[in-house]
Design a protein around this nucleic acid. Sequence first.
RNA 1: CGGGGAGUAGCGCAGCUCGGUAGCGCGCUUCGUUCGGGACGAAGAGGUCGGAGGUUCAAAUCCUCUCUCCCCGACCA
Length: 594
Amino acid sequence: MRMSKLFFQTLREAPADADVRSHQLMLRAGLVRQVGAGIFEYLPLGLRVKKKIETIMREEMDAIDGQEIVMPVVQPASLWKRTGRWYEIGDDLARLTDRAGRELVLAMTHEEVITELAGGVINSYRQLPVMLYQIQTKFRDEPRPRGGLIRVREFTMKDGYSFHADIASLDEYYPLVYQAYFNIFGRAGLDVIAVESDTGMMGGTMAHEFMALTEVGEDTMLLCNQCGYKANRQVATFVKSSSESRAEEAALPLEEVSTPNVDTIAALADFLDIPESRTAKALFLVATIEEDGDVKEQFVFVVVRGDMELNETKLTNVLKARQLRPAQAEEIRAIGAEPGYGSPVGIRRDEVLLVVDDLIPNSPNLVAGANRDGWHLRNVNCGRDYKPDLTVDVVAAADGHPCPTCQAPLRAVRGVEVGNIFKLGTKYSQAMDASFLDEDGGSVPMVMGCYGIGSGRLIASAIEKNNDENGIIWPITIAPHQLYLVSLATRRTPEVTETAERVYSQLQEAGVEVLYDDRDERAGVKFNDADLLGTPLRLTIGARGVKNGVAELKLRNREEIRELPFDDIVNQIQAVVEAETAAVNAKVITEPLQ
RNA sequence: CGGGGAGUAGCGCAGCUCGGUAGCGCGCUUCGUUCGGGACGAAGAGGUCGGAGGUUCAAAUCCUCUCUCCCCGACCA
């Protein structure tokens, strides 16, 4: 490709509304443009990157017997009504009506359509297992898109769905996808870690997320350097060790204490001069729970120790709730509690589900609210002063907490979820009536798995990790071009132009992906653009070199400059491209799923 | 949805307090000189000042409403 013809523009300054590094660089390098909040267009260079990533995805999915298909973005609402998600999912699901008044949705994922498709085609266990995937547009009307391509509304996803005759077959296949994902990310030059994750409303029994570790990520993971434990904060556990427990301490009598204008844990601990761990935090939530087809709201009173944070995912799962929301002040008063001074002692238990974290029974003599404005209670003891309905782990693991397997301190890190894999089970196949006949002639719902990777997030994460003050530093496997050819020709040096043109066609013929800077620009402009675009190899042809029969090769990720003689240039470039590609591929992680 | 910030030329910004009909840098066009890390000179093109309404002789500037974008939080099957 000739730069003089390329549809793009580099920017010296990043647009003011981009403040995430990858977003700034993508805009400055002319890879993408923003159309609206969370809506982007890809320019030629950006699309080349996207296509390369998708080629890697295809190769790896095909290698585990995946078959590519394409499903529609616009789908009839009736499919979503059959699985119930039309009713369960809120405003994230974009809905529209066609000219005839038929309800449609913009696909945010494709379980409904693919399950119906598979159900229609697969009739016999002999056709199983099968893996279908597509690389397609998704639309999720996120309340707050952010960070360039990190969190968007319209995006491209590689989504795969596997269908199995039984759980054993899924259990056998799932680890293959797990490894294929490491292959994809590794080949794209991106380090990821796989963590256990919440299955959420997707249902199913096991799920993993593939996280690119970066500060701009929205998820928090807890890692153990000692034993290798790693989990998303949503599901991470930790040891509430004996040092945390004061179970042996004798219970003291209840005592009211005046605490005017002390309505936070921090203020309370400060006011009474006690550690936060000697306080009880009261949280008021309203859960939407479905029971026997009835949907009802349940007031939930949660008690956790003052130094801990509630993990809403854990609580949601414990309650099997569809949704959790904070309670309103009136609702809190209605059950006999006082916002800011809440305590489980003396509330209207008939309407309240009282959940305490399992550390609370081992934490005697806590300070809790007195359900009276400006007052707290000392020496509140679970079991003596109130009896919980549920005693379970509902707090979030945090940095420094002891690892659940080896008790070494956990480390909290941020990451971007670039992929996920789920064992779905039969949730969708049952709802969509996707069954087959087994060996005994019985009609059985298919067992499913589903597997996603976001193309844009992968690109953004790769840039986030590979850049310097001058621009992007692409892994060669996903770079828009492998080589940036700089011609330093001027009007007085036609021999430089001739040489550059010749080298350009030689490299192209040899299959090297060349971006040829034939623009009438000064050297500095070309070098700076080469750095900004992050092309892995840069080959410079100038008057000096032409005289000596050499071109200069510099790698974006290294300092040295090498001189290559023109008569062997194609071979040498090819060798470097191969070596760089091999270096990326050598870092692919092989990690058997435990 | 709550809190904060911003919309003026392709990008970055000034002008607004105190109304008088829009400016700077980069980029873009033409010519000349230059040419190995973002050149110089000269001449140009480009703006419904986010939108609507109002006040006024006069609105980028004051008032009201509204739209959009960004950040933090809530949310994220």
